[in-house]
Amino acid sequence: MADRTAGEFFDGRAEHRSIAAKFVAARHAGEALGGYPGTPPGSLEEAYAIQALAIELRGGSVGGWKLGRINPPAADRMGANRLAGPIFTDMIFEGDAGGSREMPVIAGGFVAAEAEFLLRIGARTDPSKAAWTLEEARALVDRVAIGIEIASSPLRAINELGPAVTASDFGNNNGLLVGEELPGWRAADLDSIPVAFLLNGAEIGRATTATMLDGPWGAVRFVAELCAKRGLALEPGQWISTGAVTGVHPVAVGDRVEARFGETLSVGCVIVAQGNRD
């Protein structure tokens, strides 16, 4: 099956394009929206149609995909236990040693940060391959790093309105902070590594990936299969932000956040307001 563009693959009806355009404009301006800019999608299929049009309208390359969990009973209703959203290359940043990297958010909208394992794709996938094993998904990865996903949307209530709404606005992603590579990751049991999240120096979350469905490798499998359904390929160099280990932690402009992995690895940043991107 040949690759298809977002516009060719999805329903391009006028309301979908209008919703996508309003989200893209609000993100570009760094401004909040007072409510959902149209009729909220009733399914993930419709949500991904809107998302695909928004990717096209925004422009720029997709440097990765973020994953978010869908809990019951919504998972049963939606027919999926995860959702995905694009991470754009120009919103992916390398962490620095002092944790002073500034990460932009949409002030007045939804703002949160999440400690995540980041898995980098090393080989292009065949978009006609619909089913993947965990072993095949694992073989796609050429690097595992620690990181922080910045979840931010112009819509403050995005997560309260259900997973389809979240998926329609880039999965609620507004950036990715890439930290150090995890030493010995090929042989490591990621589920055994404790992860802590600190806000302004105080620990507010601690967990492992053992609580996360089929874990980071399962997240790669999920996104490979989802992309195949959408007629897309995963590309070398793309990062998969595999899900919030310690939870989705609300933050505010001026906050300092840090994610610690195991006993020695950490990555941090400062939350700042995003201005107009012109």
Rank of each mutant, 00 (worst) to 15 (best):
T242E: 02
L232T: 07
H249F: 14
L226A: 12
T211D: 14
G215F: 00
R221K: 12
A228D: 05
W239N: 01
A233P: 12
G262K: 13
G215D: 02
A224Q: 10
P250Y: 06
Q238K: 10
A224V: 08
A228K: 01
V253G: 04
E235P: 04
T264I: 09
V267Y: 01
F222V: 12
V257P: 00
D255N: 11
E225N: 10
A233Y: 00
V251D: 05
A252Q: 15
G231T: 12
D255Y: 08
C269S: 12
R230S: 14
E258K: 14
S241E: 05
G262T: 13
R230A: 13
A228N: 00
T246W: 00
L213Y: 11
I271Y: 03
L265K: 02
I271E: 05
G262F: 04
L232F: 11
G243Y: 03
M212Y: 10
E225L: 07
S241P: 14
R230H: 11
G268P: 02
V248C: 11
A224P: 03
V223Y: 02
R256S: 05
G218M: 04
G231M: 08
L234V: 11
E235N: 07
L226K: 15
P236N: 05
P216C: 08
V270E: 10
V245C: 12
R256Q: 03
V223L: 04
A252E: 14
V223M: 01
G215I: 00
A233W: 06
A228H: 00
G254R: 08
D255I: 12
V251R: 03
I271V: 15
V257K: 01
C227L: 15
F261E: 02
A219M: 09
W239G: 07
S266I: 04
R256V: 05
S266A: 12
T246C: 13
A244T: 12
P236H: 09
F222C: 07
E263L: 13
V267R: 01
V270A: 11
P250H: 09
A252S: 15
E263C: 15
V248N: 14
S266C: 09
A244L: 15
L234R: 06
I271P: 08
V270G: 08
G215L: 04
T246L: 04
L265T: 06
F222M: 12
S241F: 13
K229A: 09
L213R: 10
R260L: 02
F222Q: 11
L226R: 13
R260F: 03
V270W: 01
E225K: 05
W239R: 03
F261N: 04
I240E: 05
E225R: 08
V257G: 01
C269N: 07
G237A: 07
D214F: 09
E225T: 10
V251M: 11
P216I: 09
H249E: 13
E263D: 14
C269Y: 02
A228R: 00
A219K: 00
E258F: 03
K229I: 05
L213V: 11
T211F: 14
H249R: 14
A252N: 14
G237E: 02
V267K: 00
G247L: 06
E263W: 15
R260M: 09
H249A: 13
E263Q: 15
